[in-house]
Amino acid sequence: MTVYIIRRVLQLIPVLLGVSILVFSLMHLTPGNPAQLMAGESAPPDTIEQIEESLGLNDPLPVQYWDYISGVVQGDLGTSMRYNTPVADEVWPKFKVTLELSIYSTILSIFMGLLAGIISAVRQYSISDITIMIIALFGLSMPNFWLGLMLIQWFAVNLGWFPPTGWEGPSSIVLPVISLGTAGAAIIARMTRSSMLDVISQDYIRTARAKGVKKRVIIYKHALKNALIPVVTVAGLQFGALLAGAVLTESVFAINGMGRLLVDSIIQRDFPVVQACILIIAVVFVVVNLIVDISYKFLNKRIDLND
C-alpha cells in the first residue's frame, strides 16, 4: 500500500509538468501580444515595452518557462498586473475561501447523498424511496445559483436566520454550502442507490445472510463497502467541479472567492492571476484524483497494484 501511494505520487510529476506547460502557454497561445492585451489597446508603446521587459517576454520560450516554473516551485506566482502585488498574496486568501466552500459542500453532498441513497435502496419502491428520488431529481435539475437565490430569499430575507451574503462566521456558510452541495448530494444519492441495489442482489450478500448476519450489519458492512467504490469517483469529480465551478454561487452570495477572482482577472486581462488560479485548480484536481484512486485501492484490494 505504501509503495503504491509513493508510486502514485511520483506519477503525478509528469502530469503536473504538463499542466504547468499548458498554463504557461496560455499567455502565449492567446492571439495577439500579451503585453498589448494586458496594457489595453490604447496603451503607449513604451508601457508595452516595459511590460514585455518585466515579464521577460523577449526571452526565448524555454527560458521563460524555466523562469516561470522555478518561480512557481518557490511559491512565486508572478506579479498581478492589476494591483502590482505578488499574485500569491492575491490568490491565497481567496483560494482558502473557495477551498473551504468546496470542502464543506462536498462533505454535505457525501453525507446527505449516502444517507438518502442507502435509505432509498434498502426500502426500494417505498414512499421514502420515491420521495427521496423526487427530491434528488429536483436537486439535480435546479441550477445552484438559483437555489442560492431562493435560499437567500427564504432563510435570509424572510426568516432572517442566516446572513444573505459574505463568508464570515459559521452562520454565513450555511446557505452557500447548501446551495452548492445539493446537486452533488442528489448525484451521490442516485449513485449510492443504484450501486447498493446492485450489491444487495449479489451472491455474497446471500452468503452473509445464510451465516445469520443481522440485516443492519449486512447493509453497513457487507453491502456498503462494495457500493462505495463507484460513489467515491463521483464524490471526487464533484469536489473538483465545485472548486472550479463555484463562480456563480460565489457571486450570488457575494463571497470573495477564487471563482470571482478568476472571472474578474479574465475581464481585466490580469494574466498572471489567471494563470495562478488555473494552476491551483488543476493541481487540486489532480491531487483529489490521487486521493480517489488511493481510496479505491483501500476499498477494493483487487485493483491491480501496477495500475
Partner: peptide
C-alpha cells in the same frame, strides 16, 4: 431464524467465484 442460520443449518452455493465478499 438468524440463530439457526450458519449455526445449526448452513448452506453452500453453486458459485464459489461470487459467493465470497470481495472486499473482506
Amino acid at each position: 431464524m438468524r440463530k439457526i442460520r450458519g449455526n445449526q443449518i448452513s448452506m453452500i452455493f453453486q458459485e464459489p467465484m461470487t459467493s465470497l465478499n470481495p472486499v473482506y
